[in-house]
Amino acid sequence: MMPHPLTRRRGVLVVVLLGWVAGAACQREPVDRAVLNAWLTCVECTDGELDSVQALARRAPATVDTLQKDLLQGPSPFQRDQLTVQMQTSYQRLATYNANDPTSDSLGFSQAEFVARYLGNVVMIYQGRAAYGLGAIGGIRARQALDSALQFSPDSFPPNVWAQIHFARDSLIGP
């Protein structure tokens, strides 16, 4: 029996539908926050943290959106509160340790200065790494995310983060 003249068209339709379903399934893969956290907070990042982020972005395109949010917002308010408490504790321990050392001078900075400095650094690393990650992922969406960040005024970010955004954007090819 000869095939129906519409068979090929329907076959193509089935293939397209299957592809759409498969593609939708892929896009639903959630962004693994642990992978991003490892990258956003590592010191030397020599254990494949960035490679993992790039791989994650291939499986979960929403990774770019998450990193863009991390770049723009930094750690969440809850995380900042936690860090503040932690750093206050660190300062007090350090001050106690220093006070017990008869050979040591005073710390020379207040708790507020201490917390402001190191909390600022955490935020700086966090946002800077987000920018760097976008640059490493590349592609149109990442470029758009970086371009979008550059639409802000430079003083919207710590200088280091602003430099990181430029570095990441400049490393991407294309307008």
């Binding site: 956290n37 490892a38 907070t41 590592c42 955490v122």
Partner: peptide
């Protein structure tokens, strides 16, 4: 090796200073 979830697997305390990440948002 790797990031936080694997540290326990290797028996390392999560608080170890030689972790690659010395701040853990999670």
């Amino acid at each position: 090796a790797g990031f936080a979830p694997f540290f326990l697997q290797f028996g390392w305390p999560e608080s170890n200073l030689m972790r690659t990440s010395i701040w853990d948002p999670s």
